[in-house]
Design a protein around this nucleic acid. Sequence first.
DNA 1: ACGACTGTTATACC
DNA 2: GGGTATAACAGTCG
Length: 275
Amino acid sequence: MPELPEVETVRRGLEKLVLGAQIENVKIYYPKIINGDPQSFQQELRGRTIESITRRGKYLIFNFDTGISFVSHLRMEGKYFVENPKTPLEKHTHIVFTLSDGQQLRYNDVRKFGRMHLVKTAQVQQLPGLKKLGPEPTAALFDKQLFYERLKHKKKMIKPALLDQTIVAGLGNIYTDEVLWSSKINPQTPAAHLSKSEADRLHDEIITELARATSQGGTTVFTYTDTFGHAGSFQKQLHAYGRKGQPCERCATPLKKIVVGQRGTTFCPQCQKVK
DNA sequence: ACGACTGTTATACC
DNA sequence: GGGTATAACAGTCG
């Protein structure tokens, strides 16, 4: 599942592989991936040069020479590959960008959940998903006091509150279970019930956990790979996610899996007690 | 064989 | 408007 560390790893890979490349042609095999008119998507991108590749939350943003940007969300299984045009198209490749250097940038997505938007660079922040996005989880941008204030006014439980992207950007199901485990907070705790010290702990864990995962190329749980086809290695350091029934690494109590806000949730019933 | 389950966001609805 | 359920999809597992 590409969450922030995986998307950032993909971004860094793409920066090495296709920054500065010019798009010669775009082939669309599954138009629903593209938000808006696929024909104009094709036409607008032809002849454009990739000037920069940025990221906001889990959104990848390709910026072009003429003030337009292409915003891509990988959702569950979206992947980019850079390959020789002679390599046969893999199953589930839906969009192919042929580049002037002779390579192809290919978008592959088994579940077809990923989405792409083409907008003016100045309009990127106005896209529905980006408009309400919370701060990036870095020490410079993610304010501790503000985090506590926002939680205090949320009616949701802490887990769905962290997943909703408006309080802080970039957490998905895996890292949410991890930071709650590290912070010893029960996922079903109402967000508004967290004490200041719990909120502070959680805030710090979010920053360090996502940074550590990013530095290790992200987590490969099911099928995630980066643009080079490499798996991440952070899955070796997961303490909660996917460890149902295994002993908690702090207290040896078997971890439990429950559903919270329609999402599978693994936690330690001993260390992460409801208060 | 078939239903349950997986996860992320936009959208519809209360 | 906030909260919540549902749709978008395909593959895997029991």
